[in-house]
Amino acid sequence: MPGTIDEIPITPINTTNSTAVKTGGWRAFRPICDTDKCIKCWSCWKFCPDVSIAIGEDGPIYDYDHCKGCGICANVCPVKCIEMIPENK
């Protein structure tokens, strides 16, 4: 980050990957997957708007630093093995 206005380029160019921004703090509900029931269809991965699901050996691996808790993954899962749990529980 530049220290003074003179150090800001005339045409600002974005250089930092947004993964530096931890949007997980927005979340009110946390998705939890019961991987015993997962059939590895990867619908959850496919539809996550926050690219917060990785493809794991046994099922989805959540990136809780970025997941905003929208609940899309739980909604699209064909075997309903993802539950949205309140963050304060």
Partner: peptide, 13 residues
């Protein structure tokens, strides 16, 4: 990448 400023469940993202 994740860490974008789209709302929860944003279709445009």
């Amino acid at each position: 990448s994740p860490g974008h400023m789209g709302c929860l469940g944003c279709g445009a993202t």
